[in-house]
Amino acid sequence: MAKQHITTTINGEESEYLCEAQETLLDVLRDQVGLTGTKEGCSSGDCGACSVMLDGVLVCSCLVLGVEAEGKTVETIEGMADGDELHPLQQKFLEEAALQCGFCTPGVLVAAKALLDMNNNPTETEVRYWLAGNLCRCTGYDKIIRAVMDTAADMRGASA
């Protein structure tokens, strides 16, 4: 089958790739574009390790086809820090030991940022339900939830 030529913006940069019709955005990002920060844990939309933003919407990239990204913007974990300056969520995760193996971390961070961009004052319950699609087998979630809430508090403090 002929490959399709796709033009997108990935982490702010115009990007082009060729992909087969059935290839997922996850596979394209990892294998063609070389952005392996986005992880595969299940390929069925159940673990959230592959979370990315597609035109500003949080998606599981394993459930999106590569061709669907045509003309859209994609944001991945690799685009989260600003140059050598970490995003406050990234910094807080390090300070509060909110990761162990770190495999779920890219997906959790992308999802948590999507939440805080919408709502900088989430309740614990809101954070828990928002992140319910991001499995973490190492941490028991405690430190992840705290890190997200503490980042939100810092961001509110900074903008007040």
Partner: peptide
């Protein structure tokens, strides 16, 4: 840590 929060760590 930084590698793991930025997607740079190689699994």
């Amino acid at each position: 840590g930084v590698d793991k929060v930025t997607g740079r760590a190689m699994y």
